[in-house]
Nucleic acid binder design. Structure first.
Lengths: 242, 242
DNA sequence: CCAAAAGTGTTCGCCGTACACCCATGA
DNA sequence: TCATGGGTGTACGGCGAACACTTTTGG
């Protein structure tokens, strides 16, 4: 630190010190897709207040980490996964939102491939995937956080290729359609759906078929991220009409 | 507070007390529209660090107020205006974003009718409206905050009727078009623009004309919020093709 | 051979886009 | 009367929406 910076630091910690600091936390809204349903990962809270009640996975921000780092750490602690799709959503700052103390909490939402989770991972045993359509009561304002996350997911999934974050690298078109139907809670026409997806030229059809759901089998596809980035550079916009 | 709540409070302040609190702030990105230009209200910072440099209007969150309340208070202190359009945008939590201390700051953006400002208001004399196309360097990460706010404004202005927040209650269609052209930094076809706006049936044409900009005069219109709410209830979506 | 899921084309109407001329009026 | 900004209509192409039958194959 340069002498000037030290000077500033001293001057200003005095100035800033008349203000009250607040506990600062992060809560993670974790979506997964399995059995044709959109699910949310929640845990039984292990500390008071509200110990034993359902809660989002959260934690306090440490002095040496940024908000984003805190969110990633918390997600990693729960799932053992790194470098996931993760976006900051909203910061909740009502004075009494947490009965234990004044805590200002920032929510993040992430989309994960359930298949990637190491089920031996420590904390995951306290956790549970719930269908979003039948969530239990969560502590504090966590239900509101989830509602906002869902709203955002619905706002984004048809304008950005984020749905693929919820599927394995190889997937079938019926699977992809089921995902969108789960997100938007409505049925889509098979032909129109395939047309609008394939028209974008972002999926590479593989030679393999997935015969889990039918005798005929459905072709596997892979999302081509290079093509996507190239198209974006040319002013293209991802779009699935909803 | 009930006995149980006190008990919880005691138990949990112990639990929570092992975590470090952080200074928590709010910064306001304030847009206005005047002289056919989109402008941003910024101030000369009055405290160290970076005293005298250009900055967004901001302040620390007080123990007894929510984040939203803090943002509204700060906007009120600067402009003397209440109940403005104001949305939370993003929370900035990099460890060293503020050289004075670790401060986690939440940005809010608001749209105001410049005409409403009481120019005698105390703090406004330190402030200045800058065209967004030629902003100076701002302190900390404030330029990034503005960039994100602009992105959000552009994302929302053609899908929600928020543009009207920047205009006086009575406005002409050429004015409205100039606003959209300022937001999106591109020209639109007069006929198509009028068609897409009027088709929605949200504007009431008045009998008055505004002759400020032409000899012929342009009809004044008023945004009809009741009609809008009614249409929304019926599943309507505001839309101006961009 | 049959049940169950995968895959495939066409038609229609609307909306987004491009485009050029007349109108009203104060100076 | 003329310069200036305000106001108006039409034609075309593409996209979203609706819609039904054939194909494959394991059991």
């Amino acid at each position: 630190m340069s002498p000037e910076e030290i000077l500033i630091k001293q001057t200003t910690s005095e100035v800033y010190s008349i203000y009250n600091p607040h506990l600062t936390a992060v809560d993670c809204i974790i979506f997964g897709f399995i059995e044709s349903e959109l699910k949310l990962l929640i845990i039984k809270r292990v500390m008071d207040p509200c110990k034993g009640l359902w809660s989002l996975m959260g934690g306090f921000v440490k002095p040496e980490e940024s908000l984003d780092e805190a969110a990633n750490r918390i997600l990693y602690d729960l799932t053992g996964l790194k470098d996931l799709f993760m976006n900051q959503l909203h910061t909740y700052g009502e004075v009494n939102r947490d009965p234990g103390a004044r805590v200002i909490s920032t929510s993040y939402y992430s989309l994960i491939k359930i298949q990637d989770i190491d089920s031996d991972h420590e904390m995951i045993s306290n956790a549970c995937w719930w269908p979003i359509s039948e969530l239990p009561d969560l502590i504090f304002d966590h239900n509101a956080m989830v509602a906002k996350a869902l709203e955002t997911l619905r706002d984004e999934a048809h304008r950005k290729p984020i749905g693929f974050e919820l599927l394995p690298p190889k997937f079938t078109l019926p699977q992809l359609q089921a995902l969108y139907e789960a997100i938007y809670q409505q049925k889509f026409d098979k032909r129109n759906f395939r047309k609008s997806i394939l028209k974008m030229n972002l999926l590479d059809q593989l030679d393999e078929k997935d015969k889990v759901n039918s005798k005929k089998g459905a072709y596997l596809y892979r999302f081509n991220e290079e093509k996507y980035n190239e198209l974006i550079r040319q002013g293209f916009f991802f779009n699935i009409p909803i």
